[in-house]
Design a protein around this nucleic acid. Structure first.
Lengths: 340, 340
DNA sequence: TTGTAAGCGTTATCAT
DNA sequence: ATGATAACGCTTACAA
């Protein structure tokens, strides 16, 4: 069955004994074609195994039906479920999805920019928190674009994600309610809106409880397990110990937990720890991690819906769609040691 | 800088005051163009910000410079490092990578098939273990294709991965050497070559040690953490307990460990457990998991090199390239209880 | 060394 | 309701 070359619209036309124009119409505007003709065409299509050559179609149309999703790290445990949401919604509207992987390398980003500029994708979803095109970022001519999961720092682009400030606020309020006073925020030094917003939630909560600056320990990592561990070591070396660690994300929290456990401490008896994102692993930790759940599939769905809207009427919507995140209370938080 | 429409080759030609053919040559066969002309052209390109329209180019050429990588589950912890190897190699040869995500859904697979059939990708890398095109699998007309990480069950396609039999053999030999006699193999019931080969390694090792059938407990899951847990519960319920669990992959092993720990057992004092793959999480377990390391980046690199070869001379190479995997000894294996 | 022109597979306009 | 044909942007004989 391995024919040498794919069937073209002409092959179909010949077999159906109509013109190629009619074949095209039978496919895309069947109502403009006589019933009998349409039947013949579809039979011919079945015989030849014809599928539209998307390159030719897109060239002619000046647009494709593919959406490019760019992420710096495919391995990000948040990514795959977001993707499911994106895909389902795209499919429902006749679009396909292609994934680009930048590894935080501007060179790679640029290649995707080229891809976009040659109309190989109709729209762009950015999972990056920052425009990934290096020095060309400012002058990049982008198709319809929406950020997802992380607001985009330097783009002024529409975005769908969770309300980071509110999520962080839920966490800090929980810690405060348990009786914690001296709390460390293990942040992320990379310039990303999501991180500074989570920090902001932390500060607002501390403010609301009238906590003095000396009760707030802020230290930055880079959002990895390793960096959580490192931040913890720093704090121990400097002898600046809180009773609770509020971490910018789950990875960091897992690093902190691992470090604490390795030092022989018990969580939450000796220290409390919180995360953010509810990554799959978090539920498997011991103790399971108290964190904020990202409605990942929903976020993906909304983001794609937004993009498709944008593609439709080309009108740029209001800046951000913020979903409310849920607090997931597990077992990594308890009252501080002094209070028990 | 947001021009309405991308510059075309004609814009460049006009500005450089040459024909479009010369522009094309200046780009692709610069040696066939006078120095002075080449200079003018490149200046014009800079001015216009021109990038080749890949759709038009591919349509004309009948091939693209994109490689499609299809995986059922982007979230697979093995995937992201394989991808790095694939990408680096592809880039080095002027190819870009696109990722397709099937979620084990034949419908989705079919869409990628269409994508391929319209020449939108020059080659295909399959991370799937099985051709993902449903009932059209048998008649699918594929471009140059190579399987990676998992041999492809129903394709007869070239493949780059690890020697599963040899890897499993290392594991079973370790267990045997520690003194284990009654060993359970927690397998995967899905029809994939990788799993049956690991099982084969298990059997060969047991055979070589003259172990009787009643010392071999074989039970199947589906390769997830949950299924490892479930398999363990089944064994407990049936009261068929081994002293060691050899698991088809790390996820399964982690499930087994979690279940064992939840039941209050100590690993490796009460039971030994092994995995396969050395997924990132495995090193973080307590105890860290003894397993087989997949040289993921190397596998990706080799697979892409093979594909590019194939693209070059179109000659189908010998079936499989098997890399030797390393045993990673950590702390989840010890002597069986009776022997201590 | 450079230009002219055909053609890749579509869709859309204009006739018929 | 259907057919001829131009055009989308590009590469590559072939001519000059």
């Amino acid at each position: 069955m391995s024919n040498s070359t794919p069937a073209t619209i002409e092959d179909v036309a010949r077999i159906a004994e109509v013109s190629i124009a009619t074949v095209s119409r039978a496919i895309h505007t069947p109502e403009k074609v006589a019933n009998s003709t349409r039947l013949k065409v579809h039979q011919a299509i079945a015989i030849t195994g014809y599928t539209t050559n998307a390159m030719a179609r897109s060239l002619r149309l000046g647009r494709s039906n593919m959406i490019l999703v760019v992420a710096p790290d495919i391995g990000d445990p948040n990514f795959s479920n977001i993707l499911v949401g994106l895909e389902n919604e795209a499919r429902a509207h006749g679009y396909g999805i292609l994934i680009g992987h930048t590894q935080n390398d501007a060179q790679r980003g640029l290649e995707y920019l080229k891809f976009l500029n040659s109309n190989q994708a109709a729209g762009l979803i950015l999972f990056t928190g920052i425009l990934p095109f290096g020095h060309q970022t400012m002058t990049a001519r982008l198709p319809a674009t929406v950020g997802v999961f992380e607001p985009i720092y330097n783009g002024g682009l529409p975005y769908v994600g969770v309300d980071d400030v509110a999520g962080a606020r839920k966490l800090i309020d929980l810690l405060l309610a348990e009786g914690h006073r001296k709390i460390a925020f293990i942040g992320d030094s990379r310039t990303r809106l999501a991180y500074s917003r989570r920090r902001q939630g932390f500060e607002e909560g501390m403010d609301a409880a009238n906590m003095r600056p000396e009760n707030r320990i802020v230290i930055d990592g880079d959002g990895t397990i390793e960096s959580g561990r490192l931040a913890l070591e720093q704090l121990f070396m400097q002898d600046r110990l809180p009773t609770a660690f509020m971490c910018v994300n789950d990875q960091t929290a897992i690093g902190v937990m691992l470090g604490l456990t390795a030092r022989g401490y018990n969580i939450p008896r000796d220290f409390s720890v919180t995360g953010f994102d509810d990554v799959p692993l978090s539920g498997f930790m011991s103790p399971p991690l108290t964190t904020i759940r990202q409605p990942r599939t929903a976020i993906g769905k909304r983001a794609m819906a937004l993009l498709l809207d944008l593609l439709g009427d080309g009108v740029t919507p209001d800046g951000e769609i913020l979903l409310m995140p849920d607090l997931v209370v597990r077992n990594s938080v308890g009252p501080p040691k002094g209070l028990r």
